[in-house]
Structure formats: C-alpha cells, structure tokens
C-alpha cells in the first residue's frame, strides 16, 4: 500500500510537469477551445445585447440592440436598450426609436456630439431615461433605461 502511494504520488508529480510543459506551446489552442464553450460570451449587461435591427442613414448606420433585462435566474425589472451609431456621424443626431417595433415610437434621442450632450425624450412609460452616452471607436453608443412591461 505504501509503495502504491509513493508510485502514484510520483506519477502525479510527473503529470504536473507535463501539464506545465504543454501549457505554453498549447496556450493558443487551449484558449480557443475554451472560448468556444457555450458560457464563454460576455454577459449582455456589459456587451449590450445582440443586434435587433438597424437603420441605414446617410453616412452612418444606427444599430438598435435587443433590450437587456438579464438577471441571474430571471429577468430584472429594470434594463436598457443600446443604440450604436456606426460610420461617419453628423455633429447633431436626432432619431426617433421604436425599439420593440410595435409601430409606436418609444423615445427620441437628441445627441450633440461636440458638446457631449445627450437628451432622451421618452414617448412611452417603459422608458426611464439616459443610462450611458459615450464616444466609441466605431462612432457613438447610447444606453437608454427601460422598465419591464
């Protein structure tokens, strides 16, 4: 029994050596394999939700994302919808948004990029106001707070 314990301990120690020796040459492949697992995606509360639809404008495109209410076990009462303007943006933006595509406008975004001033005019009870408005590498992003129906 003592001998078996010693031998298995030493075998395990050599396996630890192999683990470290294969780690660096295999780092890229292991990381790619890990990144493909179903849970390896950024939570929509950070990433902003999947794209729902887009409006192609004169020199830029407005992408409206799906509303995000994600909680641990169920949806939360409060969430947001993210809007991305991509491309060459005008200095002043004014867009009316129907984020749930029910045929009725939900809010108007007025954005003056140079002054970094963003105003949200809610047209629906579900809209709570501005959460985030920031310049991005691709243009501009706004997150508008929502209440769940």
């Amino acid at each position: 029994m003592k001998k078996i314990k010693i031998i298995s301990g030493i075998i395990w120690a050599f396996m630890a050596l192999i683990i470290i020796l294969i780690l660096f040459p295999g780092l890229n492949s292991f990381s790619v394999a890990l990144s493909k697992l179903p849970f390896m995606k950024i939570n929509p509360n950070f990433a902003g939700g999947d794209a729902a639809f887009s409006y192609v404008q004169e020199r830029c495109t407005l992408v409206v994302r799906k509303p995000v209410f994600d909680g641990l076990l169920s949806e939360r009462k409060h969430g947001f919808v993210q809007l991305d303007w991509r491309g060459e943006l005008p200095d002043v933006i004014s867009d009316t948004i129907d984020f749930d595509r029910d045929g009725g406008s939900d809010f108007v975004v007025n954005l003056k990029r140079n002054d970094a001033v963003t105003v949200i005019n809610p047209l629906s009870d579900l809209v709570t106001g501005l959460n985030v408005s920031v310049p991005t590498s691709y243009g501009w992003t706004v997150r508008v707070g929502l209440k769940r129906e």
């Binding site: 990144s35 390896m40 950024i42 939570n43 929509p44 509360n45 950070f46 076990l73």
Partner: peptide
C-alpha cells in the same frame, strides 16, 4: 446560470484576454 461571463473584456484575442488568463 446565465451561460455568460460578467466582465467587460475580450473572450479571446487582444491584451490579457479572458480565455488565455483562465487557462
């Protein structure tokens, strides 16, 4: 529970990505 990572980083590629650091 949510099948997602609660961190605003890159899953793979770029400086200090999540997959490589976890591995």
């Amino acid at each position: 529970f949510t099948k997602s990572i609660i961190f605003p980083g890159s899953i793979i590629g770029g400086f200090a990505d999540i997959s490589s650091m976890v591995i």
